[in-house]
């Protein structure tokens, strides 16, 4: 534990111990720190267990704020702009996001885990790819690009991976509606499958509530 702290202390923004050691790093030092962790004889973080992105834009924002009872059901308390969008007439801003890329490393030799978080500035979603350090990063980075739009510099095959061929948008950003933007159906007149805007009404069954004890 202390070894990690000693090794990284000059290079990191923050050091937290929760379920595992969590360090917050700057983008410019990310690869240097990963190399340090991988090559240090006492640590040997040789395996990238997981890589994912998170959109922090709605962190800590609750949807449910009404205090009095009414008779109109749950929707009364939900702010229309809070979680993706409730109504399709709502304007959404596609630039609304706060992305963070998170790496989980495992040291099989020393039986240690570490989490590395790297926050991205909205002005540049480019982050260095770690595929040259960890072969496992290949698909994880494609996934993070596909779902969140993080661009990994140095990845030599940054294609979409999980969404459909020709998909538009990055669906796991918080502002992307849960029901999606388009739906497909077979059109008998044109005799082909067509894409059109969704016509189902998004609804919230259980609002997001934050209760402070």
């Amino acid at each position: 534990m202390n070894k990690i702290r000693e090794l990284l202390t000059d290079h990191i923004v923050d050091y937290i111990e929760t379920d595992m050691i969590t360090v917050i790093v700057e983008k410019s030092k990310l690869k240097m720190i990963l190399t340090l962790l991988k090559e240090d004889k006492n640590l040997q973080f040789t395996q990238l267990i997981d890589l994912c992105a998170v959109d922090y834009i709605e962190y800590g924002k609750s949807e449910w704020q009404t205090r009095e009872a009414t008779s109109t059901g749950y929707n009364r308390g939900i702010k229309p702009t809070s979680h993706s969008r409730i109504d399709f007439s709502d304007e959404t801003d596609d630039d609304d996001y706060e992305l963070c890329v998170i790496y989980h490393l495992l040291s099989i030799k020393k039986n240690l885990r570490i989490r590395i978080k790297c926050f991205l500035d909205n002005s540049s979603l480019i982050i260095p790819s770690v595929t040259d350090l960890y072969a496992a990063a290949d698909w994880y980075e494609r996934e993070a690009y596909d779902l969140f739009g993080v661009l990994f510099e140095g990845h030599n095959d940054l294609r979409r991976i999980l969404t459909d061929y020709g998909f538009i948008g990055h669906p796991f950003r918080k502002k992307f509606p849960l029901v999606g933007n388009t739906q497909v159906r077979y059109d008998p007149e044109q005799r082909k499958v067509i894409n059109e805007p969704v016509d189902i009404n998004p609804r919230t069954l259980v609002p997001k509530v934050i209760r402070k004890k």
């Binding site: 709605e58 962190y59 800590g60 998170i102 989980h104 934050i210």
Partner: peptide, 13 residues
């Protein structure tokens, strides 16, 4: 978790 009754983000490895 951001303190809510739903996960803020759930990543499945």
């Amino acid at each position: 978790s951001d303190g809510a009754n739903k996960p803020y983000r759930l990543k499945i490895r």
